[in-house]
């Protein structure tokens, strides 16, 4: 199941790449870098979540920061 999800996520990321890459201009170097960085990052996060679903995420950081306010209410 995990390996199937990994395959699915990789497929989606590849599709995304082949959909978007030809649309960018030759001289949009910075855009291309950001795009590659983002989809690589997203792929890594997705793979991490497939194998370790309990890793604390961005929402946990906010929950940690604002919990004192909740207790105050």
């Amino acid at each position: 199941m995990n390996w199937l999800s990994l395959f699915g996520v990789s497929l989606v990321v590849l599709l995304l790449f082949f959909y978007e890459w030809p649309k960018m201009n030759q001289n949009q170097v910075k855009e291309k870098r950001v795009f590659i960085f983002l989809i690589a990052g997203v792929w890594l996060v997705a793979v991490m979540l497939i194998f370790f679903p309990d890793v604390p995420g961005p929402i946990d950081l906010i929950t940690f920061l604002f919990r004192p306010v909740e207790n105050f209410l």
Partner: peptide, 17 residues
């Protein structure tokens, strides 16, 4: 170019943790 990668990230963040 950022629309779909960030959309994917949004979906991931919504289940992350």
């Amino acid at each position: 170019p950022l629309v779909f990668p960030l959309g994917f990230l949004t979906v991931l963040v919504s289940i992350w943790g």
